[in-house]
Computed example of a mutant assay.
Amino acid sequence: MSPGKTPRTLIDFDNDAVAAWIFLAPALLLLGVFVLYPIAYLFYLSFTTGSFTRVGVHWIGLKNYWRLLLNPDFWQVLGNTIYFTLATVMPSLVLPLGLAVMLDRAIAFRDLLRAAYFLPSITSLVAVGLGWRWLFQTEGPLNQWLEAVGMEPIPWLSSTVWAMPVLILLSIWKQLGFNLVVFLAGLQTIPLSRYEAAALDGANPWQQFWYITLPGLRPTLLFAAVTTAIFTLRSFEQVYIITGGGPLNTTNLLVYYIYEQAFAQFDFGYAAAAATLLLAATLVLVYIQLRATQEESER
Rank of each mutant, 00 (worst) to 15 (best):
F118M: 12
Q137R: 09
W145E: 07
L146F: 12
R67N: 15
M102D: 03
I154D: 00
M164A: 08
L69Q: 10
V101M: 13
W75F: 14
E147T: 13
L113K: 00
L146S: 05
A148R: 12
W162D: 02
N71M: 10
L68M: 13
M102C: 08
A100Y: 04
S124V: 10
S158E: 09
L97K: 12
I172V: 15
S92T: 13
S92M: 09
G131V: 10
P155T: 01
F136E: 00
P96H: 03
G140D: 02
P120Q: 11
P72I: 07
V166S: 05
L86I: 14
E147A: 14
F74G: 10
M90G: 10
N143L: 03
S121G: 13
G140C: 04
V94I: 15
P155E: 04
S159P: 11
L130M: 14
M164S: 05
L99N: 01
N143H: 03
P120C: 12
Y83T: 14
S158K: 05
A106Y: 00
S158T: 13
V128I: 15
T123I: 14
W66I: 13
A106M: 09
V94L: 15
M151S: 11
A106D: 00
L78P: 05
L93C: 08
L103R: 05
L167P: 10
L125F: 11
A87N: 06
D111P: 09
I82W: 13
L119T: 12
L146G: 04
A108M: 01
W134I: 02
L99Y: 02
M164P: 03
A108Q: 02
S92R: 08
G131A: 08
L93Y: 06
S171A: 14
L78G: 09
V89N: 10
A163Y: 04
R67D: 15
W75Q: 09
V166R: 05
I168M: 12
